[in-house]
Design a protein around this nucleic acid. Structure first.
Length: 554
RNA sequence: GGCUCGUUGGUGAAAUGGUUAACACAUUGCCCUCUCAAGGCAACAUUCAUGGGUUCAAAUCCCAUACGAGUCACCA
């Protein structure tokens, strides 16, 4: 009996060979230097910021080299698969406009190197595993869960290295006859890789991010096929898929660097060329309670999940820039020099990735986002705001869709200038800063936010006089302000702030107090954008109405 | 515990042997100013985890220590 017989017993139905698949997955016909990357999430949870960073780097690396970026669904762990996660990944990629060139979704396969869903690639993996068994580099292992636990416990206690290697790999020494007998007897088994490595020897490895690394050789017989569903483990699927799909650059989290020796040996066992690796740093978070730095957590940190940014209404490009800023230290400088270039023209350099993890800084995101929003036209902003509201804030949607021109005019205040206002970091922050522009948002409990105590009669008197004798909608801003000054000085308010600061006792108050009254009566707020523009939008009738509301409510 | 990586201000970081350790965000102050936002100008690491060494010269090279992170599943 030979290994071939064993392979035949395990995979009687597999008649294909590796060569068959090599023919079906010929080298890609791409220009010199083109890079092939893949985003390979597993649908065991919702897409988070770390996945996003990976996907973005994949996209940038591929697109800056006229290469290919594809999506592969790594669904070999079907026990933990989470309902809706595949759809969410697809949604996020679409939302941020980083769709892959090749993918499989909704029963459609785009691209010639599919299937792109691992659970649909079973015969391929089995063919490759069968080959490994035939050449004596893989074997069925009948160790039970209990035996495995026992071994681990023993190793822990006696401070030995943990894992299945050397004398712990019991099934390795089974004769072919014994193995076949066990299989025929129905004993469950996994297929393990038969390592030939020597832990006391070193391998040199060059990682694009971390540079030269040195590891002990792998000597662990790791499972490459699971017993229950006969699907491959990650390590095996990685080797087979990235080989057949001709991935040139694997972008993955740094939690994988410790399995480099294993992957190295696996590639060698097949005689395949290893792709290049870009190991991305972890995204960390400072725990607010303990002050400790830890891995960002989907459970504790709402901003870890990609839902967060959409719900808050951050512009896509702001999120992308923020993530790339974390990913590559020179992105920010590049962005400053190339404010209008698409992000994928950024020459990503893996060496410029920080080797240790970075804290994700929401303040930085806000700043980036404010800048982008401040540069949008009022129309564009309105439409983004509207479609965000439609999805997340029905009340806001109803109000702003009924008042399109008022909303646009309001958003336009101090916008078309060299140094525009930067009030909003996301769409959800607009309404809380503009609700007073809409009559229907003036609910019962109106609170007037005067910065200091005021005499109601005085305020009413000022507003009355102003609206009835001074206000003219045709005035430009200078004329408007001069009139207010005229009225103010006639009522003993200082019109010059410097003068007022020096001789405040000579006056009733300052022009700032004066306009402050008007501002609060009209908006309830002590801080708003330019009053002139707000008055222009409101118009005289609505201002008079608001004066009436003030009389009744203050 | 084994293996691997890391440690520059509140945060992201630049500088890779040579003047006062860039820049951005945040914070604080001043100016401007009808409030706010924006903008302008400042301040913020006597020092690069600690200790030793190499050198005319070290954040940068070497060693040790400490601390942190990742990993050690029939999860990816």
């Amino acid at each position: 009996m030979t290994n071939k017989d064993l392979a035949e017993v395990i995979f009687p139905d597999i008649t294909t060979t590796i060569e068959d698949y090599e023919k079906m997955y010929p080298p890609r016909n791409l220009p010199e230097g083109a890079k092939v990357t893949r985003f390979a999430p597993s649908p065991t949870g919702f897409m988070h910021i770390g996945n996003m960073m990976s996907a973005l780097i994949d996209y940038v690396v591929a697109h800056s080299s006229n290469g290919i970026f594809y999506l592969r669904n790594e669904d070999t762990d079907q026990m933990r698969s989470v309902e809706g996660s595949v759809e969410f990944i697809h949604h996020v990629l679409e939302h941020y406009d980083i769709m892959p060139d090749e993918y499989e979704y909704d029963n459609k396969i785009i691209g010639k190197y599919g299937p792109y869903i691992q659970s649909e690639r079973m015969p391929i993996y089995h063919t490759f595993i069968k080959h490994l068994i035939e050449i004596g580099r893989a074997y069925p292992c009948f160790l039970t869960k209990e035996e495995l636990d026992e071994i681990r416990e023993y190793q822990q206690k006696s401070k030995k290295r943990i894992g299945i290697y050397g004398r712990y790999a019991k099934s390795r020494n089974l004769t072919i006859e014994e193995a076949i007998a066990k299989i025929k007897n129905g004993e469950p088994y996994v297929i393990r890789f038969k390592s030939e490595g020597d832990f006391s020897k070193k391998i040199a490895f060059e990682d694009l991010t971390q540079g030269k690394l040195e590891f002990p050789e792998n000597d662990l017989d790791v499972p490459i096929m699971k017993s229950e569903n006969k699907l491959p483990t990650y390590h095996f699927a990685h080797v087979v898929d990235d080989h057949l799909m001709h991935t040139t650059h694997v972008v993955r989290g740094s939690e994988w660097v410790s399995s480099i020796p294993l992957h190295y040996e696996l590639f060698q066992a097949f005689g395949f060329k290893m792709p290049k690796y870009i190991h991305t740093s972890l995204i960390l978070k400072k725990d607010e309670e303990t002050g400790n730095i830890r891995k960002i957590s989907k459970r504790k940190d709402p901003e870890a999940l990609m839902f967060y940014y959409e719900e808050k209404g951050y512009p896509q490009i702001a999120v992308i820039d923020a993530v790339l800023t974390i990913a590559n230290s020179n992105f920010e400088v590049w962005r400053e020099q190339n404010p209008d270039k698409p992000f994928y023209e950024f020459p990503f350099s893996p060496k410029k990735m920080s080797a240790s993890g970075a804290l994700f800084d929401l303040d930085k995101l806000d700043n980036i986002s404010k800048n982008y929003i401040s540069k949008m036209s009022a129309q564009d902003l309105y439409h983004e705001y509207l479609s965000w509201a439609k999805k997340y804030e029905e009340n806001v949607y109803n109000i702003i869709s009924n008042h399109e021109s008022d909303t646009i005019n309001f958003l336009n205040i101090e916008r078309l200038v060299k140094k525009p206002r930067k009030d909003y970091e996301n769409y959800s922050s607009i309404f809380p800063k503009s609700w007073y522009m809409y009559d229907e948002a003036w609910k019962d409990n109106i609170t007037y936010n005067f910065p200091q105590d005021v005499v109601k009669e005085e305020v009413i008197n000022i507003m009355n006089t102003y609206l009835n004798s001074y206000y003219d909608p045709k005035d430009n801003q200078d004329e408007w302000f001069n009139k207010i000054k005229d009225l103010a000085s006639s009522m003993d308010y200082a019109t010059d702030m410097k003068e007022y600061k020096q001789n405040s006792k000579n006056y009733q108050g300052s022009i700032a107090d004066f306009t402050g009254y008007m501002r609060v009566v009209l908006t309830t707020q002590s801080m708003t954008p330019n009053l002139y523009d707000i008055m222009q939008i409101l118009g005289k009738d609505r201002m008079l109405k608001r004066l009436e509301i003030f009389k009744e409510n203050y």
